[in-house]
């Protein structure tokens, strides 16, 4: 199950999309989400579909791989669809059983919500699939730099994110080790009711926290020893620089949004 979730995974490939500046990808994804929640009618839907399809083709990520990521949210999709389908009031009742009824509005709502969610997941996972977590934090840091002026510690947040990314696998390994060590002392993590199980987690969580704090302490010292002094006056080995493709993508994203909005205003059918 966990392995099926492709959101947040990176798919290495050599494509134009992979090489784009992370800021561009963040911006385009944002535009894409705005478009997704403002479209109305079959024409704007088609525009979004074509845009997404083109992006996926350009990224060289196999379509199958992306669709696999949808498996994880099948339940959410179904629940949304069912609620929209049966619980939306409308003028024309197509089918009724006691208080449950399917109306025309409900039917369109269900279809629209389903397609929105599916497109949302595919679009956003395309971004994470083509951008390494490090590029992503880098992009966020640069893009959000103006917030520094209103005292948002952008650099510190980005640094925290990248350190978290580095230590997640280490802590998972450590959890596994401590779990085995406590199992060797007869601990039981699998049986019992919820409260008992929660209580049984204490021998796992205490050592884990102790070790996490020790690591944090060590790391802070190692960073200081390498002259880390916050974000001021830092340079970058690979500073983000816009290329031609990046400007073109910016343009394409804006044209795309305009098209969707125009289509929505002039051709909003069906509702």
């Amino acid at each position: 199950m966990i392995r099926d979730i492709t959101i947040g995974q990176y798919y290495p490939a050599d494509s134009i999309v992979h090489k784009l500046d992370p800021r561009v990808k963040l911006f385009t994804t944002l535009i894409y989400i705005i478009a997704l929640f403002s479209f109305k009618g079959i024409l704007s839907f088609a525009i979004i579909g074509v845009f997404l399809f083109a992006a996926v083709k350009l990224s060289k990520v196999p379509f199958k791989f992306i669709v696999k990521g949808l498996k994880a949210i099948v339940m959410i999709l179904l629940i949304t669809a069912v609620f929209n389908l049966f619980l939306t009031p409308g003028d024309v009742i197509l089918w009724q059983f006691k208080s449950l009824k399917i109306t025309d509005v409900g039917l369109t709502n269900a279809v629209v919500m389903m397609s929105r969610l599916i497109l949302l997941i595919i679009g956003t996972s395309l971004m994470t699939l083509t951008t390494t977590p490090n590029q992503l934090t880098d992009g966020l840091e640069t893009a959000l730099k103006p917030l520094n002026k209103i005292h948002v510690p952008v650099h510190a947040i980005a640094m925290m994110m990248s350190i978290a990314l580095r230590f997640i696998p280490i802590l998972i390994e450590e959890t596994d080790k401590i779990m085995k060590a406590q199992m060797a002392r007869g601990a039981d993590f699998e049986h019992g009711n919820l409260i008992q199980r929660a209580k049984n987690m204490v021998p796992l969580l205490v050592p884990l926290f102790v070790s996490a704090f020790r690591r944090a302490d060590d790391l802070a010292m190692a960073m200081e020893a390498r002259c880390y002094n916050g974000g001021d006056g830092r340079t970058k080995m690979k500073p983000l620089r816009y290329g031609k493709a990046d400007y073109i993508t910016y343009g394409a994203a804006i044209v795309f949004l305009v098209l969707v909005v125009v289509a929505r205003i002039n051709f909003p059918w069906p509702q």
Binding site: L165, R214, D218, L219, A222, C227, R234
Partner: peptide, 18 residues
């Protein structure tokens, strides 16, 4: 506990960047 970045070269660059 002394490697900061998730890629070797980025970690080596950490000091000079600072």
């Amino acid at each position: 506990n002394q490697i900061i970045a998730s890629v070797v070269e980025e970690d080596v660059a950490f000091g000079p960047e600072n």
